[in-house]
Every structure is written in C-alpha cells, then in structure tokens.
Design a protein around this nucleic acid. Sequence first.
DNA 1: ACCTGAACACCGTTCAAGT
DNA 2: ACCTGAACACCGTTCAAGT
Lengths: 186, 186
Amino acid sequence: MQRSDAQRNRERILEAALEELTAGNAISLSAIAKRVSVGQGTLYRHFPDKDSLVLAVYHREVQLLVDSASGLLAAHPAPIAFREWLSRLAKFAVTKAGFADAMQQASRATGAPLHPGYVPVVGALTELIEANHAAGTIRPDLTVDDVLLMIAGVWQLSPLADWQAQAARLLDLIMIGMTTGAPHPE
Amino acid sequence: MQRSDAQRNRERILEAALEELTAGNAISLSAIAKRVSVGQGTLYRHFPDKDSLVLAVYHREVQLLVDSASGLLAAHPAPIAFREWLSRLAKFAVTKAGFADAMQQASRATGAPLHPGYVPVVGALTELIEANHAAGTIRPDLTVDDVLLMIAGVWQLSPLADWQAQAARLLDLIMIGMTTGAPHPE
DNA sequence: ACCTGAACACCGTTCAAGT
DNA sequence: ACCTGAACACCGTTCAAGT
C-alpha cells in the first residue's frame, strides 16, 4: 500500500522539478520538497542528490527528441534528416532553457568527458551520422565528437532573441562544414 | 594612508579569486574572505556581488588575449590571423577552465543577450571579421553573432581530453563554414 | 574612509525518530 | 518500507559597531 504513495511522491517531485526547470528557474531541493509537501528525506530517498533529480527529469524530456531520429531517417534523405533533427535539438535547448545551465553544471561536477544526460543525444547523433556516412553525404572523417562541439551553440540561444533565425544560420554554417568534402554531396 | 590598505586588499582578493578560478574550482566568497584574512564586508565593499568579482577577474585575464588580435592582423593574412586568434581563444577557454561555468552562470542570471564579460571578446571578433570582409576571405553575410554561436564549443573543451586536437578539428570545420562563398578565397 | 565579524535567510545533505 | 522534520555545515549578503 505504501508503495503507491511512494510512487505518487516520486511522480509529484519529478513534475514540480520539470515545471521549475522548464520555466528556466534554478532548482532548489528544499523549495521543491516544500512545494510538494514532502520531507527532505523523502526527496533524497528517491534521488540521491540534486544532479540525479535534474538528470531524471532531463532524461524523460529528451527521450522523445532522441526517438524521433529514426523516423526522420526513414522519411527523408539522410542529410535532410540530420539537419531537421539538429533543428529540433535547438528548439529543445531553447524551450527547456533551465536545462542548459543545470546540465552544464552537472557535467563539470563529475569532471566526466561528457554530460551523463548527453548520452541519449549521442545515441541519436551516432545514428544520424552513420546514416549520412553510408549515404556519403558528409565528410568521411566526421565524428560524433566533432558534431558535439559544433552544435554547442544551440545551448546558448536565448528565448528572448530571435532564436529561430539564429539557429537556422548556425545550422546552415555547420552543415557546410560537415558536408564539404563528402563523397556524394546532394 | 588607509587608501593603500584598501588597494592592497583589493589586489589580494583578485589574486585569490584568480587562483581559485584558474584551478577550475567553484568560487566561494566566504572562503576567499577567509583565505585573504579579510571581513566579508570588505569583500562586498570592493565588489558588490559575486558576479562582479568573477567579472573583474575575467576582464583582466581576457584583456591580453583580446589585445593580441591587432598584432595578428598586422603580421598575417586576415584569414590566418582569424584562425590563430580562435585557436588562442580555445586555449584560454581550456586553461582558465573555471571561467566557463562562472561566466555562463553570470549571463543567465542577468538574462542579458550576451555575457557582460564577453564584450571584449566581441570587440576582438569584430575587428577580425571586418578585416576578413575587407579582404573578401569570408562569406559576405557572416556576422559576429554567427561566429559567437559557432565557437561556443571551445568552452566545452576539457583539459582532461586531448583538447588541442579536438580544438583544431573544430576550428577547421568552422573555418570551412565561414569561408565557403567568400569573394576572394585564399 | 575603511574594516570587522556577528547575523539573517537561504542552501544541500544526513539521520534519528516515527508509522 | 517509507516518511518526517530537526540538525549540520555550508552559502551569499547585510549591517551595526569599531578604528
């Protein structure tokens, strides 16, 4: 019986955290605990520390985006799918503004070479890059690491500015770099 | 007479903050106050808040880098100077690791469209871009905003990885995007 | 003028005590 | 099992009191 209570709490914590992060607010565990009327300890029972909570929320949100890569590849030529997916990533970065900071923080803390939350994104990118290599539509030596560095700018886009135009220009320029020297340019 | 004491304190605070930030540590005002044996109030007399201190330290450090742009343009063809300066920026981003987080934080807090500490960098970039436009060595429509987004990746380089190779690849790809469609490519 | 350090309102995290 | 809330060690920031 208690089990369902626990499950319920977990849900409500994730929900509240998502709302805060989506609004672009910095997250505070104490505040969230108070908001969902739960002891601090309960929060820590479900998520061992702050980063874990942020990661859990992020992971859920990013999943849809990541999953959409396959569909795009099925429906469009490889380079078009690539470009479209990056465009969706940019939108994600802007509309889930709070994640940009939070994730950046999380990565530095661990000193890991990669955001732990970036792993699913890397999965999608790998799929897109491989498809484009197979089609010969990007330079043969292009790696996931290259692309990760080139798209870092999307996390810097601001909802306040005209981010759609800025993102489009950024992606145009990036695509040129990635496609120049391709065996079978389109 | 007190004046020199105050000046001295300011110096020592900046020094301590620089050391912490360069080491890549998160900065704590309380810790710095203790480290330089100064009351908290003294710190706040010199710098109204945390961001101001970080900004002051950063501004000093970035100045040398920014100033080097003119010299590079005088000594090399415009596109070579551009590329070399970006390479120095990457080195700065890696070796002053602590700044990456700190600056990112500072920018979100104010909600400004641009890092306040990025202003000098923008100055250098403007100079480099204009020189290349004059020489016709970059695409005519390339703006500072474009370049800022494209180079965002340098702040993501890690001293732990082989950052020199990664930076070189990133800059290669970026330069292709920027130079493709130039009126007088070299 | 400039400095000190106690004080305030917040954190993240832990843990004994309850059911 | 799961939850609560007091407690701890930290923050950033303010401000009365000292020189």
